[in-house]
Design a protein around this nucleic acid. Structure first.
Lengths: 218, 218
DNA sequence: GTCAACAATTTTGTATACAATCTGGAAGTT
DNA sequence: AACTTCCAGATTGTATACAAAATTGTTGAC
């Protein structure tokens, strides 16, 4: 499967923005990037436009594109929306989910538990993402599923950071189990509230972390 | 305020897709469009990429971009998500809304009523959009507000069609008033449920309309 | 010394030229 | 006759060239 060069570049740039190589407000010079990737300006511009649509950079006509890292307030807002979207997924899933998917959720949770035991953060992270992805799918609404995946992807780097907090992994797992339990009981409201808190707490935890890290960076 | 030519083209193309000039599955030929707009392929490509990100067209590498009109199922899904997002806005707004904004909502509703009297569909539509926009804003979450506006914009052409249905305008107005009432009482749950039904019914109505119009088009 | 206007440079936006890839059909083989 | 191969045409993706706009630096007047 061949992809376009501009797509690869978009992915690479996305990574560079996520990991902080490009800091907030920095202008991304087209010719510099073209030189760096050994291509012309054309695919660079296409890549930047794609990032602009995702909200990772801001494009100002005749002035250039600038990295746009979300601030604390915006992050909290995004986590709030993520929490609400997942809550919707859970409520809808409660009446639409299949037995097979419930089984799948349990299996995923079991693998999560193994990863926690083994202190395998990466493994936990993968399974965690899978857990949420199943939930999105089981909302029975493909459009909602896609929107959730989109936002999840956007928040990915920030979710990851806060998993380091002591004891968060075990608590997170317990919350997952509570969600599955509620879904098994067909209790949409409970499932909805549980997952909302589960996600919202991540935003709050991140906020704390942010408050700690920010002064240190200056 | 100077805009880029490619942005204008994107808007124009969006309109042409909305009003059905380009039908579903049709390939959008770059050179043809370039000729039509009297520009080179470059701004055309930029415009098409933008539309691709919005989901109005699908871009298949080395094959071209194709118009992608949402089918009945996808539309219902989108309306369901819109309903849920607005429900979230209402719930959040119930505890965050300002007296001033409440006043604004009432004023907008009053103008809606006038438009209904005058059979001014366009006027009603404008005020209706404003009503919802205020609600998004009063969620107190800018990110949520933007997401709502984005989806609203996407559904715009389909919302408009279903307003023609007999008696829908009056009923819609009554629902608006019920939402404001609930917000004034600080009853987030009621406001949430009311607005959800208000939006969801639009999706259902549209579905009916779709079922009627579809056979006629063939 | 400060501010304003203007020119030079840099950078973005668009046009054109070229390369890579896909589509469709004709020719040839089994 | 059906299937495969390969070539020609068309179309997308990328490179380069040019035009328009903005930033920056300099000069000159007050």
């Amino acid at each position: 499967m061949e992809r376009k060069r501009s797509d690869e570049i978009a992915d690479t740039l996305e990574g560079l923005i996520f990991d902080g190589t490009f800091e907030d407000g920095q202008r991304l010079d087209e010719v510099q990037l073209a030189d760096r990737f050994s291509v012309s300006r054309t695919p660079i511009r296409e890549a930047l436009q794609k990032l602009s649509q995702s909200g990772l950079v801001e494009q100002i006509p005749h002035r250039g594109v600038f990295v746009r890292q979300p601030g604390a307030v915006e992050l909290i807002e995004m986590f709030e929306v993520m929490a609400e979207l997942e809550a919707v997924c859970a409520r809808l899933a409660a009446s639409r989910i299949s037995d097979e998917a419930l089984e799948d959720l349990n299996a995923t949770n079991a693998r999560c538990a193994l990863a926690v035991e083994a202190k395998d953060t990466d493994g936990y992270y993968t399974e965690n993402e899978r857990f949420h992805a199943i939930l999105y799918r089981q909302s029975g609404n493909s459009f909602l599923e896609l929107e959730c995946l989109r936002l999840q992807r956007r928040l990915q780097p920030f979710r990851r950071v806060q998993l380091r907090l002591r004891g968060r992994l075990k608590q997170s797992m317990a919350e997952h189990e509570a969600v599955v339990k509620a879904l098994e009981d067909g209790d949409g409201l409970l499932a909805s509230n549980t997952i909302r808190d589960h996600v919202a707490v991540q935003g709050e935890k991140f906020h704390q972390l942010f408050a700690i890290l920010k002064p240190a960076a200056e």
